[in-house]
Simulated scan of single mutants.
Amino acid sequence: MTGHILVVGGAVLDSLAEPTMLLVARRTAPEQFAGLWEFPGGKVDAGEAPEAALHRELREELGIGVRLGTELEALTPGGWPLNERASMRVWAAEITEGDPRPLEDHDELKWISVADSDEALSLPWIPADFPIVRALLQSLAAHAGSASGGN
C-alpha cells in the first residue's frame, strides 16, 4: 500500500484512572467533514513516532499537553481504517497542561459523558470515527465494571 497515511487521535478524558467525560471536537474543514465531530489529532509526519505526533497535534489543535494512556485496540494491526489510504491509531489521554481551546481545524469542543453512550453516539461523527467511538465506550465501560468494587 503506497502512500499510506497514518493518523493519530486522542481520546482526551477527564481522568485516565477514573474517566467520566470525553472531550470531542467539531471540524470546520474540509467541507465534507465540517460540522462533524471527531477525536482531535492529525497526520504523523515522516520519521515521527505516533505518540510524538499525537502530543504535537493536541498542542497545535487544542493548546494542551497530555499524558498518554493505553492505545485503543484497533480492528487491524495498522490501526482503525479511515479510507483506502489512511488509518488511525487512538490513545487515551489526560490533560496535564493548558485549557483546551479550538485553535486549529475546529470551531467547538465539548465534554460528553462516557457513561451515557446515547449522548456520545447521537452526535454527528465523521463516519470513520463512529466505530472507534463505540469501541472506546465499550472499553471504558468494561474498565469501569472491572475497576469498581461495588458502590
Rank of each mutant, 00 (worst) to 15 (best):
L13R: 09
E84A: 13
E60S: 09
V8R: 09
T76A: 06
L140F: 08
L13S: 01
E84W: 11
F33I: 01
S113Q: 02
P131V: 05
F39R: 07
I126M: 10
E61V: 03
D99A: 13
T28C: 05
G149L: 10
Q138S: 11
R27V: 02
A11D: 05
P50Y: 07
N83L: 01
E94L: 01
E71Q: 15
R59S: 09
G47N: 04
L75E: 12
L75N: 04
L68S: 12
F130N: 05
W80S: 15
G65H: 03
I132W: 01
V8W: 05
G150E: 14
D116V: 15
M88I: 13
G35V: 11
E61P: 02
P40H: 00
E51L: 09
S146G: 10
V8L: 04
A115I: 09
L82T: 04
L136K: 08
R134Y: 10
V8F: 00
A34G: 03
E51K: 09
P124Y: 14
G42N: 13
N83V: 02
A93Y: 04
E38D: 13
G3K: 07
W125L: 06
G78E: 12
P131W: 03
S87G: 14
A53N: 06
A52D: 15
S15I: 05
A52I: 11
R67I: 07
G35N: 04
L22R: 06
P100Y: 00
N151S: 15
P100V: 03
W111K: 05
E71L: 12
L140S: 05
L72P: 01
E94Q: 15
E61R: 07
W91Y: 08
I95R: 10
K43L: 12
A46G: 04
L137H: 09
P77A: 08
L58R: 06
G150H: 07
K43Y: 04
H106I: 11
A49R: 10
L82G: 10
L6D: 08
P50E: 05
A142K: 02
L54Y: 00
L22D: 13
S146H: 12
D14R: 07
G42S: 03
M1G: 14
L140Q: 03
V24C: 12
I132M: 08
A49G: 02
P77F: 02
L103W: 08
A74C: 04
E71A: 13
G35Q: 09
D99C: 08
E51C: 01
A25Q: 09
L54S: 07
P127Y: 10
V66K: 12
G35F: 12
V8A: 08
W111I: 15
